[in-house]
Amino acid sequence: MRYLLALLAAAFLTVLHVSVIPYVEVLGVMPDLVLIFAASWAVVRGHEEGAIVVLLAGFLRDLATSDPLGTSALALAPIVLIAAAIRLRAIETEFVPTVLVVACGSLAYGMISMTVLAITGQTVVWDHAVLRILLPACLVNALFTPLVYVPVHAFSGQGRVSAIGARRLTSPL
């Protein structure tokens, strides 16, 4: 049931991503709600659920974009690793780790996407992409994290207080 909900949520965010988000341009880039969703899920629900949601969200995203199918799933995969690594430190909140995962995940996502595009024969302007797209995307995605994190957190059945703090995380490793 939870995966069905995750699938529907990811599908909705994917449609938003290609239809409405082009109108939301901040610092020259557009927020990636699908990435934020995958990161939030991986932090809030754990890395195993996160891995499945990353796979689903990645494929759904590619079905609606011009990227080769599988690019986003591959590029989102580091989010699972980052989410697990961040859980190594005990922190009193899930929100800050989510923001960190989103920021680092955006960077990893961009680098892997560009690598796949370059391998598949498309032109990639590396310096421009890193400076003008990837770094601003880290910041913008982090800023938009609450929009997706709060619903994901609410769905996971945790209280308002723990959305901000008072919940100790432990390492799954």
């Binding site: 890395h47 195993e48 891995a51 990353v54 796979l55 990645g58 494929f59 080769p68 199918l69 599988g70 690019t71 799933a73 591959l74 995969a77 699972v80 690793l81 796949v116 598949t120």
Partner: peptide
Amino acid sequence: WLTAIAVVSLMSIAL
């Protein structure tokens, strides 16, 4: 998990 995602993704990209 990560290996599985990578394998599935790469196969999908190739297809």
